[in-house]
Design a protein around this nucleic acid. Structure first.
Lengths: 185, 185
DNA sequence: TTGTTTGTACAGTAAAAACTGTACAATAAA
DNA sequence: TTTATTGTACAGTTTTTACTGTACAAACAA
């Protein structure tokens, strides 16, 4: 095998692994391949570069690079004299993980918290009704307890997101093993 | 509005919110609706119960309840005299979150770690070749550095998963706010 | 101004995933 | 044993999602 083929093979293995795991980011394999391809490129790429390297339409490249950007997996880059948009892989992967975690779960927490609050208020209100049958009153109380449990859980999730966002997670799990320098970078 | 309709409305809001967020678990809305429906039921449900309540085929109920089980969101339940399989929502949601986190990411870490190890070995081997051109040697070295970066990152992710699995995450983010009793439950 | 280039909206098509109904194996009941 | 019930494999259908090609608006160049 020719030497550069060996390099390519080593890269391909990594790229395929990324492609097969990118669903964890809510993306499809081709977006993972795109990310992986950019990762092994030492220069930022244009949409046309990606079209060529991946053999896919420019429209696809445009939409998936946007998806990758929204998850902060890639970012815009600049190079003087180049008019086209340039993109490169974000270089702090720990931060990318945190961003992903935050983006994905924060929305869920917000939506759930709002829904819980509203339903809880309606049920509490229902409980005020003096002519409510004992049977229904009991059913309502059970639901209220369930919603309160959910509320506590989502409150925990919110605080968990905070612990990632403000980097406290690195106090618990330092970036490098057996390292006290977890404030670095 | 009739009283029980009010209860149903409060429940529906929560169920729909779950359905719209369950994609975070890699599941489709209907599985979320199934989960939500089970959550507000005070008795474990059979597949036939679910078929009736959700108006979907039994086959669908079977496959999605399995998906829910694999993520430990629901579990089998037993009730004497009932021959059919019974399922109920897992009651420790913090633990469910940890299980999800663990199941989803551990696989990714394992696959990536193996791929990185293999590619790294191939590239190191390539570097041994004494007649390798200076240009290629440099290219290989850059890739090796990138793979080492990935290796560190996935090592961190592995330790992060461990911190969730062995409950140390609750030291950083207690289940209840301002609580020192984070070892409880 | 007019002519190019670039990124994306949009409509249509291809591919994938969700869902259903049938058929059947496994288990329990008679 | 036979009969009934239950869960799921599998094939087919419907629905959804991914992807492509065209058309065009925005930004730049001349």
């Amino acid at each position: 095998m020719e030497d550069h083929e060996k390099i390519d093979k080593a890269r391909e293995r990594i790229i395929e692994t990324i492609a097969q795991n990118i669903h964890l980011y809510g993306l499809v394999p081709s977006a993972g391949r795109q990310f992986g391809t950019m990762f092994f490129q030492n220069e930022p790429l244009t949409l046309d570069d990606m079209t060529e390297k991946l053999g896919m339409s420019k429209t696809s490249m445009s939409t998936s690079v946007r998806a990758l950007s929204e998850l902060k997996l890639v970012e815009r880059a600049w190079k003087k004299g180049v008019r086209k948009d340039l993109y490169k892989v974000t270089d702090d992967w720990h931060q990318s993980f945190i961003d992903l975690f935050s983006i994905k779960w924060q929305r869920s927490v917000t939506l759930h918290t709002a829904a819980i609050k509203k339903s809880l208020a309606e049920l509490e209100e229902l409980l005020q009704n003096p002519v409510l049958s004992e049977e229904l009153r009991e059913e309502v109380q059970i639901d209220i307890d369930k919603l309160k449990y959910m509320k506590d859980y989502y409150n925990w999730l919110e605080r968990l997101i905070d612990a990632f966002e403000d980097q406290r997670i690195f106090d618990l799990v330092p970036k490098f093993e057996n390292s006290n320098e977890n404030t670095k970078n």
